[in-house]
Design a binder for these strands. Sequence first.
DNA 1: TCAATTAAGTTAGTTTGACGAACTAAATAT
DNA 2: ATATTTAGTTCGTCAAACTAACTTAATTGA
Lengths: 153, 153
Amino acid sequence: MTGGSNSAKRGRTTGDRVHSAAIRFLRAVRTVDDGARLSAPRLSILSVLAFKGPLSLGSLAEAEQVTPATMTRHIQGLETGGLVSRAKTSKDNRVVTISLSGEGRRQFDAARNARLAALDSAVAALEPEDIAKLDAASAALLALAERLTVKPD
Amino acid sequence: MTGGSNSAKRGRTTGDRVHSAAIRFLRAVRTVDDGARLSAPRLSILSVLAFKGPLSLGSLAEAEQVTPATMTRHIQGLETGGLVSRAKTSKDNRVVTISLSGEGRRQFDAARNARLAALDSAVAALEPEDIAKLDAASAALLALAERLTVKPD
DNA sequence: TCAATTAAGTTAGTTTGACGAACTAAATAT
DNA sequence: ATATTTAGTTCGTCAAACTAACTTAATTGA
């Protein structure tokens, strides 16, 4: 193996392994979500609203890392479906505050519960020590994400 | 909090925590990849070819969980860019075997090395115990993905 | 053997999610 | 009062995915 030529075989550092495991894991989760009639980005928007409460369109866009234009489209679709509502705030008449409707909350809960159920039962099928490992690592994974976004100092 | 109504607040099981951590982590990695002139799906295709060697279009499509039609498009683009080549196998004249070209390997290595470098330096900045936790968990994460895809037995 | 079926890829058309640029309306600053 | 900035919208475009229909090659089976 003298030359080796680094090409594509140099791998398997911790970061690398975690990366590909995360890819496969999320891909698997996505198949679970397929049943929902809500697309992934829209489900995610509802999730933000469900956890943080009503938000301006701009804040939502920021939270989802999307431009305001893109968020406008999604909100239009969600509003048409009756899952969210727009309202002007008294403070500033430019801002549009988006809130989850009752039906939006209902559908979000349904989708979320379905996903959690699948996730939980898959977790439950693991060895206890594997569960412990996952538990221990999730905070570290968040920290790692943090390091990446803050940019190489 | 009496009623609670489960809605959106029921969370934070292990699976749930791992799920959102994985989302944030991959989102962060994506920002690193942004510099590459190769799109994420195409980079991923090159990766499969780099690790598994030449494959038929169909197998590639399966590996990437995409329809053959979609894969055809990507391969056309990559071939135009000189990153992969098509060839007929002797065995079956319907199948088209896709191989990485020298240039394809070069560009893949470059993108991969850039990503690994960012990943590694982010990992290096973590507490040693966090690194150990991530290391320990990556196999478990793969197992979890497996459980999800194989479907609740 | 040779028609029917199945299989591998391709082509065409559509949908979805994202973007940037140009615009409107409201708020702030000079 | 005018100029600038900010929030959201509209429009046009693009990339990536899908489905359906088609071509060519292989297999079956009568």
